[in-house]
Computed example of a mutant assay.
Amino acid sequence: MPIFMDFHDLPDGVTAAHVAEMHQADLKIEHKYNCRGLTYWCDERRQTAFCLIEAPNEQAIVDLHQKAHGAVPQRIIEVNDKIVESFLGRIEDPKKSQNTKLNIINDPAFKTLMVIIIKKKSLRKKGFKTLSAAIRGYHKSITNIISKQKGRIVKEKANIYLTSFDSVTNAIKSAHEIQEIYNCVITPDLQFQIGISAGVPVTDKKNIFEDTIKKANYLAYIANDKVALSKEVKDLYESENRQISLGNKQEFNAVNTQDEKFIEHLMEYTEKVWSFSNINVGDFHKNLGFSKSKLYRTMISVIGMSPNSFLKNYRLNKAIELLDKQESNISQIAYQTGFSSPAYFSKCFQEVYGILPSNYIKLQLV
């Protein structure tokens, strides 16, 4: 049977003990609805609860909750148990709560997510093998740091890491240590881009932590030499560490709410149009609701590059992904990534990476 996670917005005054009682009421009659309650998360501070239930369908969960205690969930999504465990650390009740009469679990599902991108800045033939060895070394270091700070690697693909932490402080410490190893080793042909956001697993989206993952990805993408944080992460960190202000740490860039909204709007629009060769900067300022001059100023201030450079770099990053897959030839990749011709694509690629795409393909085959 499929597994679902539901979200309950708890009324004021409802405690973890109350949620435990409701969970026990579910377990007593779950067999009547062909359901099996696996575990739940309760956050008294944020007044939220999330249940993990094996069930034939969403309606069975609604009917079970309605009959057991009347607290119908505001949202239900289908999930993968392994993904849930990667994000939240468990798919069953914690050991300390098992075999007790009430099983009170005051364990928030609110998590801090960090995205780490190891980006290739140069693909020169001379240092290609060294670059590959450096990436392998960084992988081991990143894995060790995440584990040491009690984090979990949810997904790793193409030098991009999605990680989950119970504590904002541990996520910030991990980001600091990862930046430290990069600064100590100094690999000029690589760049680390790190973005950190925080949120709950179930929102109005269909996938677990979808909003939070998206924000962390966007923050990582626009991050340059500094770790990019959402305002919420900054506020939570300073709440947990009353004597420390992230404003005094030069390696972190806390993005304000207005800039967060701009980044989200920019990235969502870019994701829709980047592959179309007829899209240019003019389309950006029209669709983002900015004048040409205001868009340029905002992009320089928030992203650190002009709209034209941003679009070109976005397309080149996509081209690198396609070249690494080795499923298409250079001409196909040029048109797939929105360049007007293979010749122009090769020119732009060489300007940024110091090598022609044809030679980059040859290096991969060595």
Rank of each mutant, 00 (worst) to 15 (best):
S293P: 01
D43E: 12
I142L: 08
R297H: 07
L131S: 12
S340T: 14
L266Y: 12
S358Y: 09
K205P: 11
P11F: 06
S346W: 06
V14S: 04
L27P: 00
D211I: 10
G289Y: 06
P94A: 06
V19P: 07
G195R: 00
N106K: 10
T112K: 01
P73G: 12
K119A: 13
K121W: 03
Q258T: 14
Q24V: 10
I333W: 05
K231S: 04
P108K: 15
K96P: 07
K96N: 14
I117C: 07
I117A: 07
A198M: 06
I244G: 03
I181D: 05
I263H: 06
Y182W: 15
K292P: 01
F50S: 09
Q74A: 15
E54S: 13
S147Q: 14
A60G: 04
V72D: 09
I142C: 06
S277W: 04
D189C: 08
K67G: 04
F252K: 01
I145V: 14
A134R: 07
A334Y: 04
D107Q: 14
K347M: 13
I117S: 08
N278E: 09
I53Q: 01
A223M: 02
A49D: 04
D204H: 11
V302L: 11
G338C: 00
L10I: 08
F50G: 10
